[in-house]
Design a protein around this nucleic acid. Structure first.
Length: 465
RNA sequence: GGCGCGGUGGCAGAAUGGCGAUGUAGAGGACUGCAAAUCCUCGAAUGCCGGUUCGAUUCCGGCCCGUGCCUCCA
């Protein structure tokens, strides 16, 4: 039952104690939708999706609430709209749909709730109102700013103090900030920019007071509305520790009279591509959307989970190919026992324990390999049924190996045509006309990218990728 | 400059105060008309220097190397 989680707040692995075990609440910082999701976005999504699966396994599916947002108002989106000439709503709809489709392809389940920032503007304004009232925020030149000195605990998550931040600041401090560390809750919009009516920022340039939220505010407001003032787990990439999550804590705690915000903060490690930082300027951004055109999503999922989520992770073509080979092997084993009914058993405890121990997926994968070994070397039907059951149960929890084994190897091949050729090969082999059989095999490879294997129980084939 | 993370066999990647998993790649063998798959066997690793200890890869200190955040970022 016990789940252990590495908590960024304490920088230690801790036993997870839910506020209410009947309703464990998890929030994962979702994407800003103005572009395709890249493999780094996918890592975070897949990892914390697995966390939700593991929590559901431990606490019961009905007792875990998984919330992940869509940021659909942001200056980057405004910029993208200007560039493409498309309406902001069109862009955000398009890319949030693509995001969800791409993540589904990686076996990520949809969150129970996927709030959009623009649906929570009234809640954000209400929160701003509370912060101003309580002296934690102030209005200046059309902006509303959070007053960092008003929150003594500021910096606890990211372990930095204000003096350090000011000393290391690389950006010029906006003149309207009372304190250099203060951050924006609300900012004025020009007539062309999207904006919502607000009591703030009425000035000669902005007579109607229209404005838009700062980046950090949405998560605080949406969590307040959906997860409550105080909930269990908040997750995201490690780059979000500062300033995003630090600021969220400040807003939420101060808006709620000092009530704690989140008990466990989880952050996944950064990802590089072939040893380099992924960046547009290098041109090595790996998009999930492109990847799934040539590789099964399950292979990508396997690759992403092959390293521990907090470790730095290098995304390489070799890793991808190795992941493919491993899954091929497992599905091959499952295909060999396709006529044996799997025992209906629970997830092997050693695997469940590994996953409950701060998502130790490499350990879980190692044990998966041990089970696969047991399956491949099983002698009796009973042994095979048991090992098959264990492999499938473990795969179900991790989100792997749930496809039909035959279908896995067929890919997009034309089954009828291939099967016809296989029959011909079979006939040639029966007649011991190996030359003809080999010619037919070679033809299948050339024309259909299909490789044929002869096994004691018959001929199998697979589509090569 | 401030804060943080990492350095384990060719590669990937866990764990651990005392026998260092697992996968992959490699070598040999079995099986096979051939090939593939599978099975059996094998070699191969804790960045450097100190300290604590009977014993350190693990704990502590220093160093080197790599890397992230401090500005939008998963």
């Amino acid at each position: 039952m016990t789940v252990f989680i590495y908590n960024t707040l304490s920088r230690q692995k801790e036993e997870f104690k839910p506020i209410n075990p009947m309703k464990v609440r998890v929030y994962f910082c979702g994407p800003t939708v103005y572009n395709y999701a890249h493999i780094g976005n996918a890592r975070a999504c897949v990892v914390f999706n697995l966390l939700v699966k593991v929590l559901r396994y431990a606490y019961g599916a009905a007792h875990v609430q998984y919330v992940s947002n869509i940021t659909d108002i942001d200056d980057k989106i405004i910029e993208a709209a200007k560039q493409s000439g498309e309406d902001i709503g069109v862009i955000t709809k398009k890319y949030s749909d693509i995001y969800n489709a791409d993540m589904s392809a990686l076996g990520a389940v949809q969150p129970d709730s996927q709030p959009h920032a623009t649906e929570y503007i009234p809640q954000m304004l209400a929160m701003i109102g509370k912060l101003i009232e309580s002296g934690h925020a102030y209005v200046a030149e059309g902006h509303v700013l959070f007053s960092v000195p008003s929150f003594p605990d500021y910096g606890r998550l990211s372990r930095r103090n204000r003096d350090d931040m000011i000393a290391g600041a690389r950006v010029e401090v906006a003149p309207y900030k009372k304190d250099p560390a203060d951050f924006v809750l609300w900012k004025p919009s020009t007539p062309e920019q999207p904006g919502w009516d607000s009591p703030y920022g009425r000035c000669p340039e902005n007579l109607n007071g229209r404005g838009r939220p700062g980046w950090h505010l949405e998560c605080s407001a949406m969590n307040e509305a959906i997860n409550g003032n105080h909930f269990d787990i908040h997750a995201g990439g490690e780059d979000l520790i500062f300033p995003h999550h630090e600021n969220e804590i400040a807003q939420s705690v101060c808006a709620h009279g000092g009530e704690p915000y989140v008990n466990y903060w989880m952050h996944n490690g950064w990802l590089t591509v072939e040893g380099q930082k992924m960046s547009k300027s290098i041109g090595n951004v790996v998009l999930v959307h492109d990847l799934i055109k040539r590789i099964p999503g399950e292979v990508i999922r396997f690759a992403l989970l092959s390293a521990h989520y907090r470790q730095p992770f290098d995304w390489t073509e070799e890793l991808l190919q190795q992941s493919k080979r491993t899954l091929d092997r497992y599905y091959g084993l499952l295909r060999d026992v396709k006529d044996i009914e799997a025992d209906d058993i629970d997830v092997p405890q050693i695997i469940a324990e590994a996953l409950k121990d701060d998502l130790n997926t490499p350990k879980a994968f190692a044990e998966l390999a041990v089970i696969a070994k047991a399956l491949s070397s099983a002698k009796t039907e009973a042994e095979k049924a048991e090992a098959k059951g264990a492999l499938l149960a473990a795969g179900r929890l991790i989100g792997l190996l749930q496809q039909d084994a035959e279908a896995w190897f067929r890919g997009d091949a034309d089954v009828r045509v291939i099967e016809q050729k296989i029959t011909e090969i079979q006939a040639a082999r029966s007649a011991k006309d190996y030359k003809k059989a080999d010619q037919l095999r070679e033809a299948l490879r050339q024309e259909h990218a299909v490789s044929v294997s002869v096994t004691p129980s018959g001929i199998t084939w697979r589509k090569e990728s």
